[in-house]
Design a protein around this nucleic acid. Structure first.
Length: 883
RNA sequence: GGGAUCUUAGCACAGCUGGGAGUGCGUCCGCUUCACGUGCGGAAGGUCACAGGUUCGAGCCCUGUAGGUCCCACCA
């Protein structure tokens, strides 16, 4: 038995213990057929990232689950790794180059990639080290990176397979283009933002069959006038009487002097505006579809940097917004601008840089979703994969049911390069895991690889199996896959969760995980998102330095329902640090009194109080385990908190003190010591997943024969420890003590002032339990003498009574020194209530009030009257007792 | 437009399958009790958004209304 330091100092224990765990290899998991596996793969943090509260929450939840399962005897693997984060990293490196005054093009692809890898070596480990500060028990020996050799192999393998199947294809389709990042992005990366804009009402001249202007016009509105340069038709609804005659006629596209047809298409909403839509297949997804149906030409009028290209006639070279102004001006001069109207509309922006994206047609690689998504839908529908909380299913299905082909090519350099090769001579495309020696068609030996890279999420989608060694047939894959639970924020369901699910089914033929456990966002004290631009982010590392990782972890999992956002308060961390301090001191107290190792007490040596706390702890084990199995982590730890602080510290330890100080009665003292130690040990174990450091430090000092709590067995519920009778008995005594304290403090008597108490009960069992627990009843009630009897005939002095079911406790008036003060207080209260009652009665007698006031108001007054009357009766009763 | 979610004490939030209205912070009163003032004991404070319904019984289930937050879609 060692002693604990006098003060709880997280900084002094956390790093030391983490080091010990690493050295002992407790985090490491090896395939072991004799044990059941439990696996979690980490959502790989970006190598560009710094630990923020979102990570802290995510990692804490995973660590709690993995530590819990490890203690339950599972072979627990927490597979860690990091993500190359193609666009985020590329942007960072470009920024850095910019400081040096060079662009990525200046540097060239190869040199650029060298820089990127350098950057990865330098900063890629930073976030991993920060995760360790939290206490994360990842198997660091198995750390992976989305661009390491194995993951590259997995990516190429999947690409080739899916291409062979026809599920990856290259095609010219409308994609979202970010003109600042100079790359295509997927639908999921577009964020809609409401912006103030305008409706420009424009008219195009209708032509006669011979090509001359008929003098008629067709009018419509647009929010993006510059796209008119690429118009190839104007559409109306096929059944719209107003425009029936015009269908099939030609219009003159102003400024471009191009003849375009009027087509009829169901897509047009007759009710909206004039019921006419200009069709720009090159720059609008809907128009693109209309264009396909009517064989309209697709004209792209934009360059990659969102300036107008040569298809834009004289506007060529202008920026998109300059062109907009110029076009509106010219239309106005031509008398074709009918009017301008203010209008707010949703504009698609790039989630990473905030630039307004331009839909445009480009040749890109896509993943065909229609077949791929089917098993992913079925799996959740049939409960093969469980989403927690269940409400996430709606969001999931909403996305699954509206999924479109996934644009996976990016015009970036940092990432997995697309394994497609084009013959320089005949243009043949070859998709293969490695570069082919010659073109299979023409035999030419000069082939060049597609310059594009893959969407970051393409490799992330394979994470649950690529980290376990796929496409090799490893024993890890056989044993640890499918993983058990994926823990992640609900904001990432579209990017990642869905894509992992369909990839798992497609490549492995099985789900990637059994359960997805979603959590919310961590917000600041005002409920705002933590963000760099607002500067309201709270650095988890600072919190750890100040309060300890244990306190931070506890804060992140309490006071919050699964899936909901939470607000972060320093006060809450402080409260949780206080809790750690409380356990520390309680443990210190126990150790101080434990002169020798307590022996297991014989049957009958345990006293009522011991049985009570053992029974309570036993219930706690059952409840906590149950809650944790159901992912109700916050509820579970709240129960542990309440148990340790209220039941164990404030009641049990206090009850047991007289026995500890009484060195004469060795049996009783041993029973108490034994109970203290075993209940504390179980409580520490239950708490360990949440607060790994304090619990470990205490455990190791308390248990001389065990080396770590994290590999000790999880406590089990046992019917043998169920003492319902003692539970009930002690609850009744607690109630009595509370009643006495209440009465005495209410009368301004310090509880430390000893009193004589008369306990009167007609029930023999009640009297017995008070007799049996006399020692701590005395000490806790602040009594010097307790007289237990069947009736009050023996009481000669005047008393105040405390009533609990089947028991009356009498406190002699002589003990209550400040009785006059109490009388005064009660009299004041009586007066206040009387005047309130008079007021309410007055209101209710007032005819005008009754006739005019809303019924609710009247009811309220009646309610008040009733309530105050009740309170008055109570106060008078108390006064009566005093007199 | 569709969907999710929230509305509970001064503030922030728990409340699992319907039966006790709770936790943290704050407020007030009293305690240098030999583990802890990062503490101990006590108190005040709530028509659980509103209106109906189901039920012996509703914070919880159903319908509707109002307000907040978020997601998706998007009408040019």
């Amino acid at each position: 038995m060692r002693e604990l330091a006098k003060t709880y100092d997280p900084a002094g224990i956390e790093d030391k213990l983490y080091q010990k765990w690493l050295e002992k290899k407790y985090f490491h998991a090896e395939v072991d057929e004799s044990k059941k596996p439990f696996t979690i793969v980490i959502p790989p943090p970006n190598i560009t990232g710094q630990l923020h509260m979102g990570h802290a929450l995510d990692e804490t939840l995973q660590d709690i689950l993995i530590r819990f399962k490890r203690m339950q005897g599972y072979n627990a693997l927490w597979q860690p790794g990091t993500d190359h984060a193609s666009i985020a990293t590329e942007v960072k490196i470009i920024e850095k180059l910019k400081e040096e005054g060079i662009s990525k093009e200046d540097l060239g692809r190869e040199k650029f990639l060298e820089r990127a890898w350098e950057w990865k070596r330098e900063y890629g480990g930073r976030i991993v080290n920060q995760l360790k500060k939290l206490g994360s028990s990842c198997d660091w020996d198995r750390e992976r990176f989305t661009m390491d050799e194995g993951c590259n192999k997995a990516v190429n393998e999947v690409f080739v397979r899916m291409h062979e199947k026809g599920w990856i294809y290259k095609g010219s389709r409308i994609i979202n283009w970010c003109p600042v990042c100079n790359t295509s992005i997927s639908d999921a990366e577009v964020e809609y933002e409401e912006q103030a804009g305008h409706f420009w009402h424009i008219k195009y001249p209708v032509l006669n069959d011979d090509g001359s202007e008929s003098g008629e016009y067709i009018e419509f509105a647009t929010t993006r006038p510059e796209t008119m340069l690429g118009d190839t038709a104007v559409a109306v609804h096929p059944e719209d009487e107003r425009y029936k005659d015009l269908v099939g006629k030609k219009l003159m596209l102003p400024l471009m002097n191009r003849e375009i047809p009027v087509v009829a298409d169901e897509y047009v909403d007759r009710e909206f505006g004039t019921g006419v839509v200009k069709i720009t297949p090159g720059h609008d997804p809907n128009d693109f579809e209309v264009g396909k149906r009517h064989n309209l030409p697709v004209i792209n009028v934009l360059n990659d940097d969102a300036t107008i290209n040569e298809n834009g006639g004289k506007f060529c070279g202008m920026d998109r917004y300059e062109a907009r102004k110029a076009i509106v001006k010219e239309l106005e001069e031509l008398g074709l601008l009918v009017g301008i109207e203010d209008h707010t509309h949703n504009v698609g922006t790039h989630d990473r840089c905030g630039t307004t994206v331009e839909p445009l047609v480009k040749a890109q690689w896509f993943v065909k979703m229609d077949e791929l998504i089917k098993p992913a839908r079925r799996a959740v529908k049939e409960g093969e994969i469980r989403l927690v909380p269940e409400s996430m299913q709606k969001t999931y299905f909403n996305w699954v049911d509206n999924i479109r082909d996934w644009c996976i090519s990016r015009q970036l350099w940092w990432g997995h390069r697309i394994p497609a090769y084009y013959c320089d001579k005949c243009g043949e495309t070859v998709v293969a895991a490695s570069a082919p020696a010659k073109c299979p068609k023409c035999g030419c030996e000069k082939l060049s690889q597609d310059p594009d890279t893959l969407d970051t999420w393409f490799s992330s989608a394979l994470w649950p199996f690529s980290t376990l060694g796929w496409p090799e047939k490893t024993k890890e894959l056989e044993y640890f896959y499918p993983t058990d639970v994926l823990v992640t924020g609900y904001d990432i369901i579209f990017f990642w969760v869905i894509r992992m699910i369909f990839s798992g089914y497609e490549q492995m033929g099985e789900k990637p995980f059994k359960t997805v456990f979603f959590h919310g966002l961590v917000r600041d004290a005002q409920g705002r998102k933590m963000s760099k631009s607002l500067g309201n982010g709270i650095d988890p590392l600072e919190i750890i330095a100040k309060y300890g990782a244990d306190a931070l972890r506890l804060t992140l999992v309490t006071g919050n329902a699964p899936g909901n956002d939470m607000r972060f308060y320093n006060e809450r961390v402080e409260a949780n640090r206080n809790f750690a301090n409380k356990i520390w001191n309680a443990s210190r107290f126990i150790m101080m009194n434990m002169e020798e190792e307590p022996k297991a007490p014989a049957a009958g040596e345990l006293e009522a109080a011991d049985r009570w706390i053992i029974s309570k702890a036993n219930d706690l084990v059952r409840d906590v385990t149950e809650n944790m199995e159901k992912y109700e982590l916050g509820v579970a730890v709240q129960k542990i908190y309440d148990f340790i602080w209220d039941e164990f510290c404030d009641w049990y330890i206090e009850m047991v003190k007289p026995r500890l100080y009484d060195k004469e009665n060795g049996t009783s003292r041993n029973a108490a010591m034994y109970t203290l130690k075993s209940v504390l040990t179980d409580a520490l174990k239950l708490l360990h997943p949440y607060m790994p450091f304090v619990t470990e430090e205490i455990f190791c000092n308390l248990q001389s024969d065990e080396e770590s709590i994290m590999v000790s067995p999880w406590p089990l519920y046992s019917e043998d420890k169920n003492y319902a009778k003692e539970e009930a008995e002690l609850e009744s005594i607690k109630e009595a003590i509370r009643g006495i304290r209440n009465a005495r403090t209410g009368m301004n008597v310090p509880p430390s002032k000893k009193a004589r108490l008369y306990v009167v009960s007609e029930l023999a069992e009640k009297r017995e339990s008070f007799e049996a627990n006399r020692a701590f009843f005395n000490s806790l009630a602040g009594a010097s003498e307790v007289i237990v009897s069947e009736d009050k005939s023996g009481i000669t002095e005047e008393c105040v009574s405390v009533v609990i079911p089947h028991v009356n406790i009498y406190i002699p008036l002589g003990e209550l020194v400040d009785i006059e003060k109490e009388k005064e207080r009660l009299k004041k209260e009586e007066e206040r209530l009387q005047s309130e009652i008079a007021r309410a009665e007055g209101m209710l007698k007032n005819e005008r009030f009754i006739s005019k006031a809303p019924a609710a108001k009247i009811e309220e007054e009646k309610g008040k009257l009733e309530k105050y009357s009740r309170m008055l009766a109570q106060v008078r009763e108390q006064l009566q007792a005093l007199v």
